[in-house]
Design a binder for these strands. Structure first.
Lengths: 238, 238
DNA sequence: TAGATTGTTAATCGATTAACAATC
DNA sequence: TAGATTGTTAATCGATTAACAATC
């Protein structure tokens, strides 16, 4: 790694994206496999960190060490962004960062609602997570009279009965589901008619993307914990 | 699906596991691939739900519909549990549930500490997630004087300087990391010397299992959100 | 030039799907 | 028996790794 001699900037969460002229032309025609896309946010975070430390260039083996992705796989992945590297030299961090940012759509703006104002819903609505990713939480909804009317940051918790009208009216992109228990049918009913374009689902029940027709990311934390305890106990036995 | 005619029981989160005699002998010798293990909690949840509804048997195609996993893959996965199915008939829900529960170690007990008492740390320590998976949260730690001393459920937030001694003394199994920003080195330093056997990492920085030598589950929610927004915008373009 | 490191091809590995004989 | 559905094998698909020629 090579650094500029200037002092490192403050760590910014979103680094200003260089002007278009500065960007390497990614190839928007080419379809990037899902497995690669899933690794991009990791590269993005890592490159941002390098930029913050004024690291100018990096080799695939150095980036491998930092990201935990093999050098060979890294080179395969970065191929999709055109010739961002130089043989015998490495990759230009800034150009790589720009290419990946552009592809990931960093800087685009989205709107969201959080459905379920329990522990997790409240934590998410208080976190900076959304603003850091360009997502504006415009509403929080719940079924329980105990929490409806409560204030969460800039939002007042609304009755879930108002959900569909609100989403349609405010043109909401993302539904964040934080409902502690429900079956898939219930969740789909909830989303149906809201016009949202994607679902971030923390509920302990997967939503099948094919059944709802829009992108869904299921993030069942209970399953993740179960996997961990399994790994721990199976490692103990050895 | 076939149901018993008795009224469904109340939904229990952990269903009593049938006695050993009732269990199909899983084959503990056989190594189950990671990809299969990761699907087991989903089957577990689904089968528990079926048991609660007194469904006695189910075919791979029915279970496929419920879980979103293909019937062919289901049969491949269930192979690892020995002959739990009957040709021409289907699977006995109870035996399947028992076999999977046993393999996943449902019923085993673990201890944990939560490190970071911010939004997420507090939400997790208030949630029923841990007790539902047999995990007892015995301590919550933070660096900030603002939260140290505060009460969270049955825990008082302690100074992170006490972490190692506490973990060693209380024989803690799992460290739950909810630190908003840190690099891998910091996180590893934090864990090192605690003697924990696994890490559930919500921090926006992966920990490489190989670097720390114990199982780690990295769950970077920011990356997950980024993947979703990518999917949404790439679907729009079509 | 010599050394380094990419871009790319080929080999390997593993996971998923398809198909069907076995058998309840 | 006839129909249904598993268990299992083979085919396919995709992802990862290895290797090295190209070239900075």
């Amino acid at each position: 790694m090579r650094r500029k001699t200037t002092a490192p900037e403050d760590e910014l969460d979103i680094i200003e994206i260089p002007a278009i002229a500065d960007m390497t032309s990614a190839r928007p025609e080419e379809q990037i496999p899902d497995s690669v896309i899933r690794r991009l946010p990791r590269y993005f975070r890592c490159l941002r960190e390098l930029l913050n430390r004024d690291v100018m260039k990096i080799s695939s083996s150095e980036l491998s060490e930092l990201t935990g992705v093999s050098a060979s796989q890294l080179r395969q992945d970065l191929k999709y962004f055109g010739g961002l590297g130089q043989r015998g030299y490495g990759y230009n961090v800034k150009r790589l960062y720009s290419g990946i940012s552009e592809r990931l759509g960093v800087g685009k703006k989205y709107t969201a609602v959080i459905i379920g104002a329990g522990n997790l819903g409240r934590a998410l609505s208080n976190s900076r997570l959304f603003e850091q990713r360009g997502v504006w939480v415009k509403g929080v909804f719940d079924v329980s009279d105990k929490v409806i009317g409560g204030v969460l940051g800039e939002n007042t918790v609304k009755n879930v009965s108002e959900l569909k009208d609100f989403c349609r009216g405010a043109n909401i992109d993302i539904a964040v589901l934080c409902i502690p228990s429900a079956d898939q049918t219930d969740l789909i009913k909830l989303i149906d008619g809201t016009g949202v374009k994607g679902v971030w689902n923390f509920s302990p029940c997967e939503i099948d993307e094919n059944k709802i027709g829009i992108p869904v990311v299921n993030l069942c934390t209970a399953d993740s914990l179960m996997y961990l305890t399994y790994e721990i106990s199976s490692k103990q036995e050895k």
